[in-house]
């Protein structure tokens, strides 16, 4: 194992972590404030990717496509809130899960109908296709740096929004005492819809950022949603800080585990045994971490203070 490879993989881990944060932050926001479990959150991630792919072909410009696709996913989130989530708020979590599971099937099949069964690759503009040399041996694609930058900016913007704006104040107040907020004359339904749309946009953004690397495909959201669940379980459901730290932790552990676990295993077992067991263990690694965290702290690493 050499140092430059380690740095590259660590950067990849940070990139995955930031994408996970974008998905997990919406989940944890919606759960923290609305007490609603949205399994279909991953479908919004998928729709973001597909919308961005189509719009890139329409405009011939990836950045413009992202700027237009973002509000569109927000609108989709708004509609999902109005017609699926809102009637279910008063129900228990089982109904949330079943209802949004139905929604996943609907959205995935609609995506299949509209965009076809094969994935769609998203071409990048030329100025994003290059590579950046960090040192003589260390070269990484510039788009990966863009993802890291965009992810960090989105995280910073979200922290600013939640902690330093009037809307953020209402969001925090709604999370700790819903009844009191509405008694003070705040239109709680609109607030909820806004939170939902915001979560949808964050998930959509993650989908748009990953699409040029992996292409937009049916069911892409169903893989990331479970990892996002692991993130918020580890971080503490409802906690934004927990989602951020949990996402980076899971992103790094997953990426580094997949690249270096076999080397690590070779230290104390035969090379053959390491080659066969490392992939299996690294596939399970983040779930084992989750189980460990849970057995030590059932409420996650950073449980929100209120609730």
């Amino acid at each position: 194992m050499d140092l430059s490879l380690l740095i590259i993989q660590a950067l990849n881990g940070v990139q995955l972590g930031l994408l996970l944060f974008l998905v997990a932050s919406g989940l944890t926001l919606v759960f923290g404030i609305l007490d609603f479990v949205n399994l279909a959150h991953g479908s919004l991630y998928m729709l973001g990717a597909f919308l961005c792919a189509s719009l890139t072909f329409v405009f011939g410009n990836f950045v413009l496509a992202v700027l237009v696709a973002l509000p569109l996913t927000g609108v989709i989130g708004f509609l999902v809130e109005r017609f699926v989530a809102r009637p279910l708020y008063a129900r228990d979590h089982l109904d949330h899960v079943l209802g949004t599971f139905g929604l996943i099937l609907v959205l995935d099949t609609l995506a299949h109908l509209i965009w076809g069964p094969a994935g769609i690759a998203v071409p990048l503009p030329e100025w994003l296709q290059g590579q950046v040399a960090l040192s003589e041996t260390l070269v990484i694609p510039s788009f990966r740096l863009v993802i890291i930058g965009a992810g960090l900016s989105a995280a910073a913007g979200l922290f600013w929004l939640v902690n330093y704006t009037r809307l953020g104040m209402l969001i925090r107040a709604g999370a700790s005492n819903r009844t009191m907020v509405s008694a003070l004359g705040i239109d709680i339904q609109t607030l909820f819809a806004l939170v939902f749309a915001l979560g949808a946009m964050l998930a959509g953004l993650a989908g748009m950022l990953i699409a040029p690397i992996t292409e937009a495909s049916i069911g892409m959201g169903n893989n990331i949603i479970i990892t996002a669940f692991v993130v918020i379980i580890v971080g503490g459901i409802g906690s934004m800080k927990g989602a951020f730290i949990g996402a980076l932790l899971i992103g790094l552990i997953d990426t580094l585990g997949r690249s270096f676990l076999d080397d690590l295993f070779k230290v104390f077992m035969s090379s053959d045994a390491a080659e066969t067991s490392a992939p299996a263990v690294s596939a399970m690694l983040i779930y084992i971490i989750m189980a460990l965290v849970l057995s030590l702290r059932p409420q996650g690493l950073f449980p929100p203070r209120t609730r």
């Binding site: 079943l98 209802g99 599971f101 139905g102 609907v106 099949t109 299949h112 109908l113």
Partner: peptide
Amino acid sequence: YWHLPFGLMLMAVVL
């Protein structure tokens, strides 16, 4: 595309 009506049915049952 049978998952589409199936999903709608599932949502209707829950709702």
